[in-house]
C-alpha cells in the first residue's frame, strides 16, 4: 500500500515481504517473498553475503517489464535457524528461584550492558524513554509502583505521551537493557533462549508480568494495547 502511494508519485518500488498471504492480496508493484522469520527480513544478522543476495534479488525485480510481480527468494532458512516467532511469556513458567530485587538486578545488568556497548560500538535499541541506563533504578521503582496499583508517574514522561504508552516504552527499554546485556554475557545466544531466560529467571521479567496484569485490568483500549505489547 505504501509502495502503491510511492509509485503514484513516480517512484519505482521494490518490497521485501515476510507474509506471502498478505502480499498476494495487497499486490504491491514488485515484491520479493523471503522465507525468513519476523525480524529477519534480510536473512541473518551479521551475514553481509546473504543480505546482499536478498538485496540483489529485490533490486532485480526492477528489471521486470510489467507488474504486479511477486517472486520467491530461492534460498530457504537453514535447518536449526531461529523459530518463526519468539516464545511468549504466557508459555514460559517462571523459575522457582527468581531474584527479589529488580532494581539491584538492573544495576548488575547495566554492567553487562556497558560491555555490550563496547562490543557493538555504541549500538543499542535502548532509548525510547530518553532515560539513560544509569538511571534505570528509577524506571524500575516507577514500574513497581505502577504494578502495585499506585498512582505514579515520571517527570521524564512528555506531556503528549499517554501514561500507558510511556509504561510500554519503559518496559521496552528495560527489555533492551536485559536482552543486549545477555548478548554481552553469551554472544551466541539466540532470541528464543534469551526470551526464556528473561521471562523465567529475572526479577525484571516477573515485574513486567505484573505491569502487564495491571494494564490489562483496565477497560481503556490504550491500556489493553500496552498490556498486549509488553507480555502475552
Amino acid at each position: 500500500m505504501l509502495a502503491r502511494a510511492l509509485e503514484l508519485a513516480g517512484i519505482s518500488t521494490t518490497s521485501i515481504s515476510l507474509v506471502r498471504e498478505h502480499t498476494e492480496k495487497v499486490k504491491p508493484p514488485r515484491a520479493l517473498y523471503v522465507p525468513f522469520p519476523f525480524g529477519h527480513a534480510l536473512g541473518r544478522p551479521d551475514d553481509p553475503e546473504l543480505q546482499h543476495r536478498v538485496l540483489r534479488a529485490a533490486l532485480d525485480l526492477l528489471l521486470e517489464p510489467a507488474g504486479p510481480v511477486l517472486h520467491d527468494f530461492p534460498e530457504d532458512a537453514e535447518p536449526g535457524a531461529q523459530p518463526p516467532a519468539p516464545p511468549q511469556a504466557s508459555g514460559i513458567t517462571p523459575a522457582e528461584q527468581v531474584p527479589d530485587d529488580a532494581a539491584m538486578e538492573t544495576t548488575q545488568m547495566r554492567r553487562y550492558h556497558e560491555r555490550w556497548l563496547e562490543k557493538s560500538g555504541g549500538r543499542t535499541l535502548l532509548g525510547l524513554t530518553g532515560i539513560p541506563a544509569t538511571r534505570f533504578r528509577g524506571v524500575v521503582r516507577f514500574l513497581e509502583g505502577f504494578a502495585d496499583g499506585q498512582d505514579v508517574d515520571m517527570a521524564e514522561r512528555p506531556p503528549e505521551v499517554p501514561l500507558p504508552n510511556f509504561v510500554r516504552y519503559c518496559a521496552d527499554d528495560l527489555k533492551a537493557l536485559y536482552f543486549e546485556g545477555h548478548l554481552a554475557m553469551k554472544p551466541a545466544a539466540g532470541g528464543e533462549e534469551i526470551a526464556r531466560w528473561f521471562w523465567s529467571e529475572t526479577a525484571a521479567g516477573r515485574l513486567l508480568r505484573r505491569v502487564r496484569d495491571r494494564l490489562d485490568t483496565s477497560d481503556d483500549p490504550r491500556w489493553k494495547a500496552a498490556a498486549f505489547g509488553i507480555a502475552r
Binding site: P37, H40, P45, D46, P48, Q82, A195, G229
Partner: peptide, 15 residues
C-alpha cells in the same frame, strides 16, 4: 513481541 528483536539488536541491516 511478535518478532525476535535480537536480530536487529545485533545488526540494523537485518531490516
Amino acid at each position: 513481541i511478535g518478532f525476535d528483536r535480537v536480530a536487529i539488536m545485533r545488526d540494523i541491516n537485518i531490516s
